[in-house]
Simulated scan of single mutants.
Amino acid sequence: MVNYRYLGNSGLKVSEITYGNWITHASQIENDAAIATVHRALDLGITSFDTADVYANTAAEEVLGEALKGQRRESLEIFTKVYWPIGPQGPNDQGLSRKHILDGINGSLRRLGVDYIDLYQAHRYDHETPLEETMQAFADIVRQGKALYIGVSEWTAEQIRAGHALSKELGFQLVSNQPQYSALWRVIEEKVIPTSEELGISQIVWSPMAQGVLSGKYLPGQPLPEGSRATDDKSGADFIKGFLRDDVLAAVQKLRPVAEQAGLTLPQLAIAWVLQNPNVSAALVGASRPEQLDDTVKASGVILESDAMTAIDEALAGVAETDPAKTDEASLKGRPTG
């Protein structure tokens, strides 16, 4: 079963293994399989579910809503996001304007079939909308009871600090950030995490297995496994390309004895590693089959000894990305056009 952690300095507890449906729902797998996987997550004690309006152009929210239908609402923590272009992708179907945020929350509530969202997140920073306008819209949503908590995703330390200050003035508080984070992608450690710790904000991290590379199934000098994420454009093949260098894949293979010594599989080791960071509240995981979650949840509650953490650092030295500027690169300088 899964352990729970507080989200930032709020009183909300979330499952430290959180189910995310980016890529899978309404895209990679059929709806019946998606629903079965969500039900397995519930059976294993996962109560937190993360989605976004942009996933499968709103269809992923609908699938998650169908999968959670009939569950006790008070026992769930449902997260979604707003920013990327959705629907017909008109001029106001994107960004963090007041119009798009208010339209966005209403659309997400309808598709998910709920009266409120537990955590509503700014999917990226919007350089084309005044931050004051964005934060005022979030404040109104909280006051209306349509969202209980507000978070962000892939914001820089400076953006988080500015957003946090405005949120306090407006009577609510940012509680979370959702960045990419894994033993191979550590760009938030130098600036984002210290700032977040200071402000009472925690991380809900995506891609803790580096798009599956930390599972060890991709071997240096070998063809990509058939049916793997790296061979499927619908499964995020573009995102994984940067990790598919032979030096990275060879380094990952050095983690096998570390995992064996800890009594873990490589995927479990990868997830347990991100959960060792006290500023991480949850690791987002996806699954295309229910049984995949049976393995994943065993990372919950694992405490890695210091020698294991050192061995991981040594194995991945020189290939793990640590440049904090990469966080700024994830923060688009202009809105996407489609």
Rank of each mutant, 00 (worst) to 15 (best):
Y120P: 10
M135H: 03
Y116A: 09
S153F: 00
L112A: 08
R143A: 15
L148V: 08
K99A: 15
L96Q: 05
V152H: 09
E74W: 01
S97T: 04
D115F: 01
L112C: 06
T129I: 00
L170I: 08
P179G: 08
W84Q: 11
V114A: 15
L96H: 01
E154N: 06
A139G: 11
L112N: 12
P85D: 04
R186H: 03
Q173S: 12
N177V: 02
L76E: 12
A183Y: 14
L174P: 08
S182H: 05
H123D: 09
D126W: 00
T80D: 13
S167Y: 02
N106T: 15
S153G: 13
Y181H: 06
I105H: 05
A183I: 04
Y149W: 12
Q144M: 12
G70Q: 02
A137N: 14
A157P: 03
H164K: 06
V175D: 04
H100Y: 10
M135F: 07
Q180A: 03
E154W: 00
L119S: 06
T129F: 00
R73Q: 10
Q159F: 10
V175P: 10
E132L: 03
D126Y: 00
G90L: 05
P91R: 00
K146V: 10
D93G: 11
R98S: 05
D103C: 07
Q94D: 10
R73H: 04
I86N: 12
R98N: 02
P91A: 14
Q159T: 08
L109C: 09
D118I: 03
L119I: 13
R110I: 03
R143D: 15
F79D: 15
L119Y: 03
H127Y: 08
V175S: 10
S75Q: 13
L148R: 15
A122M: 09
E77N: 13
